[in-house]
């Protein structure tokens, strides 16, 4: 309420410090019936606070991510696939497995291309991506990611182009190495990307998430390798996938255990089902790969299962984040616990 048109920064408002209404102040000091309204200060308090909480009509406290699931969960998957494939491709190169190398490199470039499409689709207009490159902000995983992609994209593309066409082999090799150096970061930074939000299921999981993500990336890249490489060359793909799947499974287990109530969405509902499917697919894919290593068909099948497992895992994690954002209890309860802990510590 203006006192004239100028502001009055700091000037104490005149006489506005009224007491609130009816029930806010518990006593009516003028009243003969005061005793009736006085409440027992320092009286009994429930010793163990119930795990209940209040909310504002059940409305979420934070905003759910506005990202389109298909685009962004898809991007998480594709980015991981690309980054890890670049590493695998380089390794295959260095260890003389040309089909695996070529397949992985092309796969990386392809996945990257699709990832770019997904990103731009979510932004609405391609030109908007350029705004990402206005600034460098280490505090923004998305900024870091953009620069990473800016660096990694041409390398991965170059590596793939060279390996397909055979042109500029030297540059191709350099590109391959460069992509392999940046690829892991591309695969891993997305963990920071989603953890660096207020979304409880993501943020609280920031310790494990990078391992879940690289694990999942390796699973996917391995799967792709199994799909594209000749059987004699697919050993590393199989090993990579195995390592990835093992890492992912372990990390997810740890995560769920550590998160407690906030971890619920990883186990229940659609997100829980997706993650269970991911586990099953990865395990099945892996088993299949190990058993059917010599069979091109079986390898391909297992590769597809691993890819699907990785994708399901990303979609599951994405979905779990949305669920945890929508239900205020995932925001409020951990914070309440934290406060209680702090209060306890202070006492």
């Amino acid at each position: 309420m203006g006192m004239g048109e100028t502001d009055r920064p700091g000037g104490a408002p005149p006489d506005r410090d009224a007491l609130p209404g009816v029930a806010a102040g518990r006593d009516r000091p003028w009243s003969r019936h005061r005793a009736r309204h006085r409440r027992g200060r320092g009286g009994e308090r429930p010793m163990v606070p119930k795990a209940e909480f209040t909310s504002y009509y059940g409305r979420p406290v934070i905003k759910r991510p506005v990202w389109n699931s298909l685009d962004i969960a898809g991007y998480l998957f594709l980015g991981g696939l690309a980054g890890a494939s670049s590493v695998l491709g380089a390794g295959a190169d260095l260890t003389g497995r040309p089909t695996l190398a070529r397949g992985a490199k092309v796969g990386a470039a392809g996945a990257l291309g699709l990832a770019a499409v997904a990103l731009v689709h979510d932004l609405g207009r391609p030109a908007r991506f350029l705004n990402m490159l206005r600034v460098v902000k280490p505090s923004s995983p998305m900024s870091v990611g953009s620069w990473l992609l800016a660096a990694y994209g041409p390398l991965a593309a170059g590596a793939a182009a060279s390996s397909v066409t055979g042109w500029l082999p030297r540059a191709g090799r350099l590109a391959t190495l460069g992509a392999a150096a940046t690829g892991p970061l591309v695969a891993a930074y997305t963990a920071a990307l989603i953890s660096d939000t207020a979304v409880p299921a993501w943020h609280e999981a920031y310790r494990e998430m990078p391992f879940v993500f690289v694990g999942s990336a390796a699973t996917a890249a391995g799967g792709l390798g199994l799909l594209v490489a000749r059987a004699p060359e697919n050993g590393p793909a199989c090993g990579f996938a195995a390592a990835g799947a093992a890492t992912e499974l372990t990390a997810v287990r740890l995560l769920k255990r550590r998160l407690g109530v906030v971890g619920e969405p990883y186990e229940t509902g659609r997100s829980g089902r997706l993650l269970r499917a991911a586990e099953t697919l990865s395990a099945a894919g892996l088993g299949c790969a190990l058993l059917g290593r010599r069979s091109r068909a079986l390898s391909a099948l297992s590769g597809a299962a691993l890819l699907a497992g990785s994708a399901a895992s990303r979609f599951g994690i994405f979905e779990a984040g949305l669920v945890s954002a929508d239900d205020p209890k995932y925001t409020v309860l951990p914070q309440r616990d934290r406060l209680r802990g702090a209060a306890g510590a202070a006492r």
């Binding site: 005149p14 006489d15 506005r16 410090d17 009224a18 007491l19 609130p20 209404g21 009816v22 102040g25 009516r28 003028w30």
Partner: peptide, 24 residues
Amino acid sequence: AAKARGAKVVHIDPRFTRTSALAD
């Protein structure tokens, strides 16, 4: 402002309104 200076506000209304919310 009057409340801030100690006035007591009584609200007579069939309904509990925004005024009741701030009344004593």
